[in-house]
Design a protein around this nucleic acid. Structure first.
Lengths: 302, 302
DNA sequence: GATTGTTCTTTTGTGCAACAATATACAATC
DNA sequence: GATTGTATATTGTTGCACAAAAGAACAATC
């Protein structure tokens, strides 16, 4: 119909989009693990932690070096050049992949119901100007996160879980059921190591990182905390259910504002919960969790 | 390595695999709806119910006619030729699609841990002798059901939810938490129509169909019952969580034997539950549900 | 007025071949 | 002994042309 519009260049000439992405993953990991400047970045260890092999890790490391965040000597591997900070604060890695942007745009459009519940791939390809392959990866990811599903014929349907305005309250109600229940499960237990690791991380956040973290990171850290706790039930169904809720809550998170004080209080509750869990008073812990989840707090943040 | 084995014929000459599949869907629907011989099969209505358009429905109807299960007059549409019975009992439609078999085989292999947790697509293609496209559809479906997930690099990883031997008990524990809790949610409500429809269906199963149904069908009917109930909470997170558990329980179901008496008792409990729900005694209903779910019963059947 | 028959358009799946990314194994180096 | 460097095999992705499936609109029939 319209003139054969010279479509957007197939692949922009930034050679190393993937590499920068990997670099970001590595930095995020280093951050979570509380690594400091000077710590070694051991390929195999990173590979294991990220469920990859050394080849892609190495790409990421080279990108980190190019960005000045790591230093490498031949045969001696790489070393962190700076204390890892928020990725968002690293302009050198700011080449957020195009797909991320499209993802975010779609998420925004769905949340604002600017998209119909049922859509076809072709529609989306036109609307967001992506290739079929790119779109399919996106859709697969979204499907895995549980907010879109294939229709039997053509097209996809967004889950009501996202499109509805009450979704946030519903997510909260759901968590208020499963999280305390998980803790109250007969076999519930957390190893000392896990508790220590969680406490360290929360403490770090509490003491000096809250100010430097983005909303997304704070949210992520909260999710990981709760998921680690619920994992203690030893029942993957609880964990998986929580993961799904969280992946949807993440969509809302970007809209919520940063209330650093509220967050501090929130993290303090996490620490308190850990204390109770450590002494194995699980009934009490379940109770505490229930109250923790009821607190109003920052919209959408727990 | 081995001689270039003349691979399996691309597409066996059964022209209408898809059509038979659609026919099966239509019969299953007719069955669920309690239709009888002589009832009209209205294209648009079927299309709406199956989330498809009339084109594929029509294919299915023609296949049904070819199989002698429906009769069609020009310009007068199709009519059920026989009371719809178990699809398994319809040899004419027995051309279960090859993919179903592969699916079942994979499921079996995973349950019996004959497969490693991490697999690559190429491995699976070789092992089950399917094309890439076929395999991808299967994997997508399995991923949607939640028991496999893509790894960041190559390959896929089966969820521990399936591979572990305690999965069944864990599914039960999880349901015992969410189902009663859903009923106990503040806004819980079921419309009279839903209750009536459910009661009808359960009654039908109870009175004369249990004997004729396959394990899979009985299981399916149970799932639908519970899902319909939980939907009353108006919170899609509960519903979705239950759906996921059920799609995994379905894998186990095929291994369990048929205890028709246990099932009768089971269905009777469903009917009792409906009575309580009808009078809006939700606390009591939640209780009843909790007990219903605790009952040992047939392995894997609730 | 509802339903079916027919036709046309749009959308999606498929197979292939070149290409890119990842994994693996082993040698080299600290 | 652990870690990095390198080479090679394996695996997955992309774009394209073509085939098949699904959807939509409207006429024909009951």
């Amino acid at each position: 119909m319209s003139p054969p519009d010279s479509s957007r260049p197939r692949s922009d000439k930034n050679g190393s989009e993937r590499a920068e992405h990997l670099a970001g993953l590595i930095m995020a990991l280093a951050r979570r693990e509380g690594m400091k400047a000077g710590d070694r970045l051991i390929e195999q260890r990173l590979a294991d932690a990220l469920d990859l092999s050394r080849a892609p890790i190495r790409l990421g490391l080279k990108a980190l070096e190019a960005a000045g965040l790591a230093r490498g000597e031949p045969h001696r591997g790489f070393v962190l050049a700076k204390n890892p900070t928020s990725i968002a604060a690293q302009p050198a890695l700011a080449a957020v992949r195009r797909n991320e942007q499209v993802y975010a745009t779609i998420a925004g459009d769905v949340l604002a119901t600017r998209l119909p519940a049922d859509v076809t791939e072709a529609e989306l390809m036109r609307r967001y100007d992506v290739t079929r392959a790119e779109l399919q990866r996106l859709l697969d990811r979204i499907a895995a996160e549980g907010w879109i599903a294939r229709l039997p014929g053509y097209g996809w349907r967004f889950a009501e879980t996202v499109s509805s305005p009450e979704a946030q309250a519903q997510a909260k109600a759901f968590r208020a059921v499963i999280e305390p229940a998980a803790i109250a499960q007969p076999g519930f237990a957390l190893t000392q190591e896990v508790i220590i690791r969680l406490r360290e991380r929360q403490q770090r956040v509490f003491e000096d990182e809250i100010e430097k973290m983005t909303i997304g990171e704070i949210f992520q850290s909260g999710c990981e905390f709760h998921e680690e706790i619920i994992r203690g039930a030893g029942n993957p169904f609880f964990l998986e259910a929580l993961r799904r809720v969280n992946s949807i809550r993440r969509l809302f998170a970007y809209r919520s504002f940063a209330d650093r004080d509220g967050m501090r209080r929130h993290v303090r509750e996490h620490l308190r919960l850990l204390d109770v869990l450590e002494t194995r008073r699980y009934t009490e812990a379940a109770d505490l969790m229930a109250r923790h989840l009821q607190r109003p707090l920052v919209a959408g943040l727990s």
